[in-house]
Simulated scan of single mutants.
Amino acid sequence: MPSDDLLVAVETSADDVVLISVRGSLDGWSDCDALAEALSRAAQGSTQQTVVDLSRLTFADSTALHALLHGLRKHAENGIPLVLAGPLHPSVSRLFEVTGTHAAFRFADSVEQARTC
Rank of each mutant, 00 (worst) to 15 (best):
T63H: 12
A64N: 04
A64P: 03
A64V: 00
L65N: 08
L65D: 06
H66T: 08
H66D: 10
H66K: 09
H66P: 00
A67S: 12
A67C: 11
A67H: 03
A67E: 04
L68W: 02
L68F: 01
L68R: 01
L69I: 09
L69P: 00
L69E: 09
L69V: 11
H70M: 11
H70P: 02
H70Y: 12
H70T: 09
G71V: 06
G71S: 09
G71L: 08
G71E: 11
L72I: 05
L72C: 04
L72R: 07
L72M: 10
R73W: 09
R73T: 13
R73S: 13
R73P: 03
R73H: 13
R73K: 12
K74W: 13
K74S: 13
A76K: 12
A76P: 00
A76M: 08
A76R: 12
A76S: 11
E77C: 13
E77A: 15
E77Y: 10
N78L: 12
I80S: 10
I80K: 12
I80Q: 14
P81V: 14
P81A: 15
P81F: 15
L82P: 02
L82Y: 08
L82H: 09
L82A: 14
L82D: 13
V83H: 01
V83G: 03
V83Y: 02
V83D: 06
V83R: 02
V83L: 06
L84Q: 06
L84T: 05
L84N: 05
L84H: 04
A85D: 07
A85M: 06
A85F: 04
A85L: 07
G86N: 05
G86H: 03
G86F: 05
P87K: 00
P87D: 01
P87T: 01
P87Y: 01
P87N: 00
L88S: 03
L88H: 04
L88E: 00
H89N: 15
P90E: 06
P90A: 02
P90R: 04
P90L: 01
S91V: 09
S91M: 13
S91G: 01
S91Q: 14
V92N: 05
V92D: 03
V92G: 05
S93M: 15
S93G: 15
S93A: 14
L95F: 06
L95E: 01
L95D: 01
L95A: 04
F96M: 03
F96W: 05
F96Q: 02
E97P: 08
E97D: 15
E97M: 14
E97R: 15
E97V: 15
V98H: 10
